[in-house]
Design a binder for these strands. Structure first.
Lengths: 216, 216
DNA sequence: CATAAATGAGCAAGTTTTTGCCTATTTGAT
DNA sequence: ATCAAATAGGCAAAAACTTGCTCATTTATG
């Protein structure tokens, strides 16, 4: 909204090229300053205290998971809003993230508008912080102030989950995709984790259009 | 732990008889004072401000959903810890609940030990509150104080989800069970919501051991 | 360059699942 | 009591899924 808020840089983290590209483009085209990272550790090196920014990150990445990343970021500056994105329904993870003070926790698929909206709220957050005063150690309290902004109605609406089979398939797809991502597309590892015959995994990947190449 | 904490009553809410019985028994046997409700609205009438208690509730119930219930409870006394239990992977719901300040959000299946542990933490919470002082309007801040108590490691551990098929089946089962609960076991409604042929639903229910009688 | 590991698929027999058509009970409401 | 709606299953043909064998390429690795 304010010029100032819009200038707050958005750090995007996701080892999935496709995701990063699509997302960063969308946000950029919407006028936000975006900087993408495929490697979480790279981001950590860049972040500095007292330097307003917003982090948008996937929760599942080869090295660190979103929770770890969040802890590291909070180590730099507790006020940095972290928006996490998840592919599969890992409730405990979501709950944990919220406890640690994640700004928002989106599950795929979500509309780009939603992400943009949330990201802007996160930027806006810094505005309010600086309004109150420079920078005290108002850790979680400050975060709280903004969260209310998200309106609940949205959730009710797109609850139009759909057909049983579709939901189940979607779940299975995510499960596989998640394992693929976790193991950087190394099939044997995925097979081990999911405990499924190779031929079957092959079939399912084909069925769901999961291409190994995107996870290497 | 302390005698005082142990005496704080635990209100259990779940329209599922089986669930209520099992849970309340477990907690009772562990020495906690438990009072079960099948109807959320009944609980609301019982709760009074400045009267320490802990609420353990399912998120999906015919009339109200867990979120609504939580809002009502917070309307009575913001300090009451609310522990929500969910059957299926509704992340947005979990996130929303945490934002509203849920004390914990457990997803089935969870070990009874886990629930007991969390419930005790919730009771303990009141101890700390009263230590600090009577009752200011320390809304979420106070909650924050305790959450850290939950150790993260647990989540990593029992992440031993298992076999792909099992996970998927578990998901499908929850999906159906959830719909059954939502519609109080009225098959046509479930069929409509899940958009699945009756005969197929029949088959799946049999497969997963879902019995209509338990949802009426 | 040579060898082992990793991939992707075609085949096809063996299983499961899906579902429409029917019939027999139950339940609820009038 | 009576009629419609709701339930439960049996059957069985059709469709979908699973998965071990094999083979042809690609990729690492030393």
């Amino acid at each position: 909204m304010d010029n100032a808020a819009k200038d707050i840089i958005v750090y995007l983290v996701d080892d999935d090229r496709g995701m990063v590209c699509a997302t960063s483009q969308w946000l950029s085209l919407s006028g936000l300053k975006v900087r993408a990272f495929a490697d979480p550790s790279a981001l950590i090196k860049v972040i500095k205290p007292n330097q307003p920014c917003v982090v948008v990150s996937d929760v599942r990445m080869p090295g660190i998971d979103g929770i770890e990343l969040m802890k590291l970021i909070r180590g730099k500056d507790k006020r940095i809003p972290v928006i996490l994105i998840t592919g599969h329904g890992d409730i405990p993870l979501a709950v944990e993230a919220m406890k640690l003070g994640a700004f928002e926790f989106l599950s795929k698929p979500f509309s780009p508008e939603k992400l943009l909206d949330v990201t802007r709220q996160a930027q806006q957050f810094w505005q309010e912080v600086s309004d109150h005063t420079g920078h005290q150690k108002q850790s979680d309290e400050t975060m709280k102030a903004v969260e209310v902004t998200t309106d609940l109605t949205e959730f009710e609406e797109d609850d139009t989950a759909g057909n049983l089979t579709d939901q189940v398939d979607e779940f299975e797809k995510d499960l596989i995709a998640s394992a693929m991502k976790k193991h950087r597309g190394v099939i044997p590892k995925v097979i081990e984790e999911l405990d499924v015959p190779r031929r079957t995994l092959n079939a399912k990947m084909k069925k769901y259009g999961i291409v190994r190449a995107n996870y290497r």
